[in-house]
Design a protein around this nucleic acid. Structure first.
Length: 183
DNA sequence: CGAGTTTGACCAGCGC
DNA sequence: GCGCTGGTCAAACTCG
């Protein structure tokens, strides 16, 4: 994922129907850049939702078990992910976003679980997981190797819960509706 | 004190 | 089989 996707024909402003609840930057110019699914996304039209292509991917990660093994000194030390199998590729969408900020405020809460230097890039790749306890969506964030002003954000999986930020902003309205509907 | 981040280590997959 | 690389874990640390 080092190269920009071939001849991107368009810049798009991500509408809310694309499940990016709040474009982090005004008139954010976002290019669909997934090396995997960007063609299907482009062809899917405005009703496309991330991950709709494969609803089964809301299931748990392939293997969540970790090996913690005893060391000779008596301490325990994890041995990384055990039993990892050849993984079926979940729906992945990547964006090229021109932004000084690495992290797009997409309305969901993310917890960083790793950072890694990647080959052919001076910029490290950061790994994030959705903090929602039943949600296993992941995203990777990396600056483009050739243009540091471009942030490549890759989403993997589907959120199985509403956007918290959106719900927060809607909650006063919902309360008002509930109140009014009680009459 | 809980939630989130940093970071070094570990593991699987892949190419040679 | 070996080395490289990407992805993940979890202890230690930071922050509010």
């Amino acid at each position: 994922m080092d190269e920009l996707p071939p001849p991107l024909t368009q810049n798009i402003n991500v509408p809310i129907s694309y499940s990016l609840p709040s474009p982090p930057h005004d008139l954010m110019q976002t290019q669909i850049a997934s090396d995997i699914d960007w063609v299907s996304l482009l062809s899917a039209g405005p009703n496309f939702k991330f991950g709709n292509q494969n609803p089964s991917s809301t299931s748990k990660p392939l293997t969540a078990t970790n090996g913690a093994v005893g060391l000779e000194n008596g301490s325990t030390k994890h041995k990384g992910r055990v039993g990892r199998t050849k993984k079926t590729i979940p729906p992945r969408i990547a964006f090229h976003t021109k932004s000084p900020d690495d992290i797009l405020d997409d309305g969901f809460r993310w917890r960083k679980y790793g950072q890694k230097a990647v080959k052919n890039s001076i910029h490290p790749r950061s790994y994030y997981r959705c903090t929602h306890h039943t949600c296993y969506v992941k995203k990777q964030i990396q600056r483009h190797s050739k243009d540091a002003s471009i942030v490549v954000t890759t989403y993997e999986g589907i959120h199985n819960h509403p956007c918290e930020q959106l719900m927060e902003s809607l909650s006063p309205l919902l309360r008002q509706l509930q109140f009014l509907s009680s009459f």
